[in-house]
């Protein structure tokens, strides 16, 4: 009975995190269209793709096909996510961005192929399973920590500048949430033999499912708050921030200022 209650809670985390990703994706999609921003459009596609992959696998009982199908959606989601990072942080300095993108494409294709090849070994936990899971780790780790690194680097460069505190907080929140989610495939290493993923009858399997869904829920909440930041939260982050009133100079006023500045008259 207790296991079923726990399973219900973890399932709620799973559904909740997917719903949050879709809602955040819709919000970003609308903002992207209004502001004509292609990079954030890619981020919205990434959220939709990952969410649909999970929905397909978890709720439509696709059996053996569920895993590979989810992997296709995750592949699209991860690729668009990396392109979003590259076009947001590395325009005109794309060398490292291309390297990361190529690595992610290779690791992603590898995951799809392995999911197709090893359909029948899903519960045996033999070498092919651990090979697939071991290669899944760098795939997820690189994708999410590419954002962690980019956000953290940008935050370090911007933190001393006169920029609203909620924008700086957005960098930090995105960096932390991505870093934590980058470890979310580790529970797969400990999945007991002969038991399929997400089986409430087995305590260890349930615990691993719980860890994964809790990480997803944490990620989804922080990411949603970061992008869909309500005014009250912006005010909270800006509580110690004040800025001088914006003056609009006319051409003449500005030239006068410069004259005083440079000629001392």
């Amino acid at each position: 009975m207790e296991l079923m209650i726990l399973f219900g809670i973890f399932l709620f985390f799973s559904i909740g995190s997917i719903s949050l990703l879709i809602i955040t994706g819709i919000f970003i999609l609308v903002k992207s269209i209004i502001n004509k921003m292609i990079n954030t459009l890619l981020l919205a596609i990434s959220f939709f793709s990952v969410a649909f992959g999970f929905i397909g696998n978890l709720f439509f009982n696709l059996g053996e096909l569920g895993g590979p199908l989810q992997e296709y959606f995750i592949f699209i989601g991860f690729i668009t996510f990396v392109i979003f990072i590259n076009t947001t942080f590395y325009k005109k300095q794309m060398k490292i961005g291309w390297v990361i993108l190529i690595i992610v494409v290779v690791l992603g294709i590898n995951q799809i192929v392995m999911h197709h090849l090893f359909l029948d070994v899903a519960i045996k936990r033999g070498f092919p399973y651990f090979l697939r899971v071991s290669l899944d780790f760098p795939y997820i780790f690189i994708v999410f920590n590419w954002l962690t690194y980019s956000c953290f680097k940008a935050y370090k460069q911007l933190k001393k500048h006169d920029i609203q505190a909620w924008i700086k907080a957005r960098y930090v929140l995105l960096a932390i949430s991505s870093f934590i989610l980058s470890f979310h495939n580790i529970p797969e290493f400990f999945q007991p033999k002969d038991i399929l993923w997400v089986r409430p009858s087995n305590p260890l399997s349930l615990l691993l499912f719980g860890i994964t869904t809790s990480l997803m829920m944490f990620y989804a909440i922080i990411v949603s708050l970061s992008w869909f930041m309500p005014r009250s939260l912006k005010r909270f982050f800006n509580r110690n921030y004040s800025r001088d009133l914006e003056e609009d100079f006319t051409e003449e006023e500005l030239m006068k200022q410069f004259k005083i500045q440079f000629e001392g008259c």
Partner: peptide, 10 residues
């Protein structure tokens, strides 16, 4: 610091 366009624009 080009990411500022996105981070402050959404």
């Amino acid at each position: 610091n080009q990411s500022l366009f996105t981070m402050s624009g959404i």
